[in-house]
Design a protein around this nucleic acid. Structure first.
Length: 306
DNA sequence: GCACAGGTAGATT
DNA sequence: AATCTACCTGTG
C-alpha cells in the first residue's frame, strides 16, 4: 500500500456506491471540481475543503483529506454528500409502479445521490454552464480558482478555493473574460455586483420556500429558469426543483411522448408527474440518457428526437 | 471552415 | 405570448 504523505488514512462513510454511480454523482454535471485520479480515486474541493473519495471493494465509500484540512472536511463532508438524506428511500417514493421508464433509470443507477453544495459556488458554476459542456465548465471553474481564489491548506498549498462573491465583485469583467468565460463574464460580473449591494441576500434566498427562492434567483443577470433550478437542486437541497435542459427536453420528448413541448410545459409535466421529488427524478433521467448516449450512440449519429 | 454546446436576454413577429 | 438571435470560445 502506497503511503500518501500529508493525507489522512481512508475513513468509511455510510454509503454504498458503485464506481460508475460515484462518477455520475461527482462528474455528471452536479459539481465541477472533481477530478479522477489513477486508481479510481476522486479528488475534489468545495469552499475551504479538499477531499478524496473512493469506493472500496465491499466496504463502501471512503474519504481522505490533507491532514491540515481534515477537521474542516470532517465537519462539512456529511452535508456536502447530504448524508442525512436517504436517497434510496426517496427513490421508492417516485412513481416506479406506474412509470416503467423511471423505474428503469432508478435500477440503472442504484443509490444515485444529489449533492448539497455551497449555494454560492453552485451559483457561480452554473452561471458558467450556459451553452457549455461539462469539460469546459470544469475548465472555467479551474481557471477562476487558479487565478482568483485564495490558497487552501495550512501551510497554503498550490490548490485554491473558488473566489467568494465578494472577491469576484472586485474583479473587472475583463479579468473574468481572461478566465475563458466568454459572454458569461458579463453575467458573473453583474451577479457579483448585485450580491455585493445586498449582504446576506444569497443566504436569505437559500432559506426561503422553493417558489420564493426561485423568483429571487431569477432576478440575477444570467440566471434563467434552468440555472435557477440547478442552483436550488444542487446548492440548496430543494428536491422539487426540476431543471429542464436540452437533455431533459429530448429525454421527456422521446420517453414520455412530449415531442414539440416547450421547456416550461415539460417542467410543469415533470412537477405534476414526479411530484415533490421531481428533481431526483430529473437526475435519474439525466444520468440514464447520458449513459445511453455514451454507450451505444455512434459519434456521427446524434440523437434527433425533437 | 463551420455547426454546435446541459442558456439567457432582448428584439421581433 | 411564441419565435428568432446574439453572445464567447473550444471541440469535432
Amino acid at each position: 500500500m502506497k503511503i500518501d504523505a500529508g493525507w489522512t488514512g481512508w475513513t468509511d462513510l455510510p454509503l454504498r456506491l458503485t464506481g460508475s454511480v460515484l462518477e455520475e454523482v461527482l462528474d455528471g454535471g452536479q459539481a465541477f471540481r472533481w477530478q479522477r485520479q489513477p486508481g479510481g480515486v476522486w479528488h475534489g474541493a468545495w469552499e475551504g475543503s479538499i477531499a478524496r473519495l473512493r469506493t472500496a471493494e465491499d466496504r463502501g465509500l471512503q474519504w481522505s483529506a490533507p491532514v491540515s484540512l481534515a477537521p474542516e472536511v470532517g465537519r462539512t463532508l456529511p452535508r456536502y454528500l447530504a448524508l442525512e438524506t436517504d436517497f434510496p428511500a426517496l427513490a421508492e417514493a417516485l412513481p416506479r409502479r406506474t412509470d416503467p421508464h423511471i423505474a428503469g433509470c432508478i435500477g440503472a443507477f442504484p443509490n444515485l445521490r444529489i449533492l448539497r453544495q455551497p449555494i454560492g459556488e453552485t451559483l457561480l458554476c452554473f452561471l458558467f454552464s450556459a451553452a457549455k459542456q461539462i469539460v469546459q465548465i470544469k475548465q472555467m471553474t479551474a481557471r477562476i480558482a487558479e487565478r482568483h481564489g485564495a490558497p487552501l491548506g495550512r501551510p497554503p498549498g498550490s490548490e485554491r478555493r473558488l473566489p467568494t462573491w465578494a472577491e469576484i465583485a472586485r474583479l473587472t469583467e475583463s479579468d473574468l473574460r481572461q478566465c475563458l468565460l466568454g459572454f458569461r463574464a458579463r453575467h458573473v460580473h453583474g451577479t457579483a455586483r448585485y450580491l455585493a449591494a445586498r449582504p446576506g441576500w444569497l443566504e436569505e434566498t437559500e432559506s426561503l420556500p422553493y417558489a420564493e427562492a426561485k423568483e429571487r434567483l431569477l432576478a440575477l443577470p444570467g440566471v434563467g429558469e434552468k440555472i435557477a433550478d440547478c442552483v436550488l437542486l444542487f446548492g440548496a437541497g430543494r428536491l422539487e426543483a426540476f431543471p429542464v435542459d436540452v437533455w431533459i427536453l429530448r429525454a421527456m420528448a422521446s420517453r414520455y411522448r412530449l415531442q414539440g413541448w416547450r421547456p416550461a410545459q415539460v417542467a410543469h409535466f415533470g412537477r405534476v408527474h414526479f411530484g415533490p421529488l421531481a428533481g431526483l427524478a430529473q437526475q435519474y433521467l439525466f444520468a440514464y440518457e447520458r449513459s445511453v448516449g455514451r454507450n451505444s450512440r455512434p459519434k456521427d449519429d446524434p440523437v434527433r428526437v425533437l
